[in-house]
Design a protein around this nucleic acid. Sequence first.
RNA 1: GGCGCGUUGGCCGAGUAGUUAGGCAAAGCUCUGCAAAAGCUUUUACGCCGGUGCGAUUCCGGUACGCGCCUCCA
Length: 470
Amino acid sequence: MLKFYNSLTRQIDELKPIKDGVVSIYSCGPTVYDNAHIGNLRAFIIADTVARIVRLAGYKTKHVMNITDVDDKTIGRSQQEHEDSSPEDALKTLSTHYEKRFMSDIEAVGIDISAIQFIRATDSINSITDLIKELYKAGFAYIAEDGVYFSIDKYIKSGKTYGQLVELGAVADTKARINNDEYDKEDARDFALWKLAKPDEPVWPFELDGKDLGGRPGWHIECSAMSVGELGQPFDIHTGGIDLMFPHHENEIAQSTAGHEQKNLAKFFVHNEYLLVDKTKMSKSMGNFYTLEDILEHKFKPLSFRLFCLGSSYRTQADFTWENLASSHNRLKGLCNLAALQWQAKSDDKDSGIYIDGTIVKINNFLLNDLNTVEALAALSEVQNKLEASYLSEKQLDQFKELISLIDSVFGLDLGSTPDISADQKRDIGKRDKARRSDDFNESDKIRDQLKEQGIGLRDTSSSSVWFRL
RNA sequence: GGCGCGUUGGCCGAGUAGUUAGGCAAAGCUCUGCAAAAGCUUUUACGCCGGUGCGAUUCCGGUACGCGCCUCCA
């Protein structure tokens, strides 16, 4: 039984796909105006893991992620960095650059990008403007000086609930608090569906009610148009960081349900908590703003960061420090060495008494229960301890490979491809064993030192040696 | 001010109304030709005060502290 914590119901619910066999997932993706920071990466790692676990449960996934390649930030930055280009070209140059970088970053942290369908906002302008027209026609949108806005008041008066993900009190308070002169909207809660282009900003043509409204889409409407356009309505799971819950996701719900009788936008909203750095939110001014590049500079592997993310619950604020990453880094090394046992199974008829099948079942159950990667890893560690204190027999090799492939399918740590050592190194280990058995300790220690220089450590048992990477 | 999350052993981090989480780090011991690895020990920890239970780290109330959201934000 596949279960996730659902922000809509505030409890753990069982997921039953809307369509037989296929689960539709929409993840709020990046705004490509800068390199992704590690907090962004956590959100994408969690979204990827949600999809992997859905597949583990036996379903296919249709996983869509948007790429916001037009908004205030991308435009602002493109104007700064590419002054000589036309607004459109400048934006395209900037967003293409950061989109490529985004792809390579998330691939580095083990996200299977072939399993995700990416959609750019700029490639979806038609469906966005269609949706705005529809909302306008139905009376939920109005044209103002600087753009087209969504009317929360009309939405509520049509009998809908604004505040499905957050308490209404917060929303009412927001209304009282905001007094923003920059926008020409009727109500402080209203949000832009479409923004008119200012001079030197890129323009997409848009005509509404006979008016020429060249400009660009608002942020919230993109996600509504793209998710429903690709997945239908409602779809199964909407993922994103907890900070997107309000107003972004709340607004998405409003846009997509205005004028619709029954349908919600998605059945599940799965939100990951923030990644803190040194116990506070990351920010450039605090000097605790890290990207994948920083991780590489500290000589850590991107997959160590992935393991760090999966080593705590996605629903808690995990605290990132270099010390904590080092801990995950060492653990990952240990797991790779566990996987290396696949090359060293002993041909032994005796049963080592380690029950791998049971662990596979346990791990499956943990994962299907609201993404409990932490308990799943603990179960794996138990087997690891037993195997390292004992040995892996050839009789267990198939089970063992099944275990590693299960872990890889969900955790994406690439353990299965841990390589064997070279034929020369194997020969050396054999030579050392022989020397050691004949009490030629000078020779055996010499070979041991040589192997150590090659990054291979040895664990001597009563009968032979097991190698591992240092 | 409104809303939400958290407080667990050296560090990180699950979970549970009674029974060893797990990882990382350090020290000692055992094993070993010496090492390494492994095992064992240091290590029955759950913010504080009340309440309900035979029994609470786990439920309820209060309180202190930390973090986040309410403005672009994963």
